[in-house]
Design a protein around this nucleic acid. Structure first.
Lengths: 228, 228
DNA sequence: TTAATTAGTGATCAGGCGATAAACAATTAT
DNA sequence: ATAATTGTTTATCGCCTGATCACTAATTAA
């Protein structure tokens, strides 16, 4: 103890973490690092940010690529399994409320510089996990939204949405998604009030779904409140 | 000639291009290369694809970074200056027709794997040219679309669109843009008929603009034709 | 206290990178 | 034909990269 009091080295800042926790700490900081530098970032720079030497990384991960894979896995799994499917399909509540609440929560999770950058990098790489995630969005989110819209409109709730319906849902979803890209990646000025943006996008989408597909979704609900 | 007939080397495939054309050829192929490999791609691989040796690149460009800058410049300037401003503001035609034609043309230019990838890479790098382009889209496209919508709706065409209006236009525009990302970058299945997608997106946007901002845009125009 | 195990470091390797210099080959000017 | 100029290649440099190995320091087990 008294030996450590000497200013020889500023070590022993914190007690050793359990191997598993240390590993997770590495992955977390590596995620931040790669999200900024891209996956071409060097292991030495990464190690410096972790406050350790570079070879130590190879005690925890067999290779840089394995580390990267773990980064992907944690990032992609982070925003999932949060009971959104139940939220979306809870027909005791108005569909517009459900959608507003869902997109508020969903964008709270994915609208970070870290998440969006990792997502776009993996998309550019054409990684399987990216395709998997796109499939999840389509099947777990957009398809259910369409089904709820059809139910709301009194249309037959068939098993699969049509290609046109799905495309319209994608355009809607992407419009919201890209708000995050503009704000956190392009760092371009956006409408400050995110929930207002979602609200307007919902009004447009529900009105459009009603008009194009002939239903009556959101009638008497979509607020025509004056803006500004 | 007869000398070249010997199988010594398969050179002399083509007469020498003018220095300027050769340079342009290099930039064009470098664009393809970097769009696939990312800007971390090596100069040796690039040279191999060009059919020359690596040092030759440095006779045409002072550094790899200068070459990359030229790639950006050509890619970003490629889709511009095509008389779209006139098209958008030609009030002798219905606004919906103008918007459909504009987005047909615009997406014909930017919906290539090459363009979209370079665009996203530069966005992730936070390059000035990317911010500049975002500004161009906002000022030359979205602001004018809003002005035309306001005029169509009988609303006062004030100088600047409100933040809410602009955001709504961005959400609309981004929804269309991301169709290209899903198709050409994620290589995810999309609605085959691009113009149908644009048509539906327009119906939704115009109906939404009408509803949220209280005008009468597109009334009697938006086709309520049954979809599939 | 001592032995065994785990965490972390310093030195180093082979390979790839961007970039340069000198030599060679082809074209153009005289 | 000869000289000057431009286009292209071969060889190489210094640097950085991911990865490995042998070693030291810290923790845990006996």
């Amino acid at each position: 103890m008294r030996r450590k009091a000497s200013p020889k080295r500023a070590r022993a800042k914190q007690k050793r973490l359990s191997p598993d926790d240390r590993r997770k700490e590495f992955v977390a900081k590596a995620t931040e690092f790669f999200s900024e530098e891209g996956f071409g970032g060097g292991t030495r720079d990464l190690a410096r940010r972790l406050g350790v030497t570079q070879p130590l990384l190879y005690r925890y991960f067999p290779s840089k690529d394995d580390l990267i894979k773990e980064v992907y896995r944690t990032v992609y799994l982070e925003p999932l399994d949060t009971g959104w499917e139940k939220l979306l399909t809870d027909r005791s509540r108005p569909i517009r409320d459900r959608l507003q609440e869902f997109y508020n929560a969903y964008t709270n999770v994915i609208f970070t510089r870290k998440w969006l950058r990792i997502y776009l990098y993996s998309g550019l790489k054409g990684l399987d996990i990216n395709r998997w995630y796109v499939g999840v969005v389509r099947d777990k989110i957009l398809s259910r939204i369409i089904r709820e819209c059809r139910h709301e409109a009194g249309l037959p709730v068939q098993s699969k949405p049509t290609a046109s319906e799905l495309e319209m849902a994608w355009v809607f979803h992407s419009g919201i998604f890209y708000y995050g890209v503009r704000k956190y990646i392009y760092e371009s000025p956006v409408l400050e009030d995110k929930e207002k943006m979602i609200s307007d996008a919902l009004d447009v989408f529900l009105a459009g779904f009603e008009r194009v597909f002939g239903g009556a979704v959101g009638v008497g609900r979509a607020p025509v409140k004056a803006v500004v």
